[in-house]
Design a protein around this nucleic acid. Structure first.
Length: 106
DNA sequence: GGTTTGACCCGTT
DNA sequence: CAACGGGCCAAAC
């Protein structure tokens, strides 16, 4: 369990409810700020059976993942909203409000 | 072990 | 301002 994507799962799992993290941020935490793509790769590679809050992982500009990943267009949006995440009129997450500090602070 | 792809990011056209 | 391309890294084929 030392592979890159394994660390991604571990890190994503640490994201507290009501917070979101960006691919670049996670990649940077792993030590590869350029590995944002690899993070996205790990996300699409991880089975949904896993207890992984992938809905809390979004792109740097606040846009959520493509709908086909969650099987529903606003599916991810609903889950985030249920956790207290708010969106702007463009359907994007307010990173300034919910962006994860990188520490579970818990 | 080289090629392809992937839920990205950033700069340039 | 929207679209395109290049670049980065890691895993699957």
């Amino acid at each position: 369990m030392d592979s890159f994507h394994d660390k991604v799962y571990y890190l994503v799992r640490r994201i507290p409810a009501g917070c979101v993290a960006t691919y670049g941020q996670i990649a940077s935490m792993l030590g590869n700020p350029r590995a944002s793509r690899a993070v996205g790769w790990a996300m699409r590679a991880v089975p949904r059976e896993m207890n992984l809050p992938c809905h809390r992982v979004i792109s740097a500009n606040g846009t959520l993942a493509p709908d086909h990943v969650f099987g529903g267009r606003n599916k991810q949006k609903e889950m985030l909203a249920a956790e207290g995440i708010t969106f702007d009129e463009y359907g994007r997450v307010n990173l300034n409000l919910h962006l994860w500090d990188g520490q579970t602070r818990d």
